[in-house]
Amino acid sequence: MTDNHCTLPTLVRQPFERRAFISYVLSAITILAAVAACIPLFSVLVMLIYRGGRRLSLEIFYALPPTAFESGGGFGNAIVGTLFMVGIAAAISIPFGILAAIYLAELNPHSKAAQIARFSAKTMTGLPSILAGVFAYATVVLTLGHYSAWAGGVALSLLMLPVVLLTAEQAIIMVPRPMKEAAYGMGCTPAQTMIKVTLPVAMPGIITGVVLAVARAAGETAPLLFTSLFSDYWLQANEPTASLAVLIYNYSGMPFENQIELAWTASLVLVVLVFVLNIISRAIGQRKK
């Protein structure tokens, strides 16, 4: 071996060599973009904590909304209303969504019915939420003759259904095929395979989808505007019903300082609610590993 240093490439880092330099610049751009993506979320959070945090007290959870020139007050009825209507929506969309997902994922994935259902669900995820409201207005409000929490729940369920259905379908498909084969090999009927083996394994994924759908529904305003409307009183399911989202919409446009402050606080409460639901869904999703 002769010493011939001239032909050996240098192994020392050369940050200003062209390739290395371009690589640094591109990396820096991606970091900047990643940081920029966080700015909206954090600025909203800071703003909400700053403007909404001031009125945060126990009172807002149990008090009714104030009248025009009254001070104090809260939006306990709106919190109850949101929870109630999201509950109705969940009670409608979760069983339908999961049962449909079982059909799409396992029973007959290639049938015409399954293809149509899958396509409809995908289209529905992009449905402008106000149209869900219009649909519930036409079907529930006009039929019953009055605004109600039921109508609001139906409108929200239309938004939840496709999310539950599609995520549940994916979760069921993701269950390893050998595991399902083992169940059939043991002599399980298709129903037993689904209940004893597939669903338990798919459950974390299904719950993640459900929680995300609930979080989405909780924050929706448009579907409630002409289904549940708003109310200054405690929940009565057959009457117009208050919700956090509509309260924010209504109060933020009012000329009264007290109401505007409450709108900020309601926004904070709503964001925290959605945030907590997202964390729960993440925790459940990670447990599946």
Binding site: P176, P178, M179, E181, A182, A183, Y184, G185, M186, G187, C188, T189, V197, P200, V201
Partner: peptide, 19 residues
Amino acid sequence: PVSVRRNIGMVFQQPNPFA
């Protein structure tokens, strides 16, 4: 076929215990 499979057991290529 379900009762056939209950009488004729099967072990697969990939170990596939249930979770």
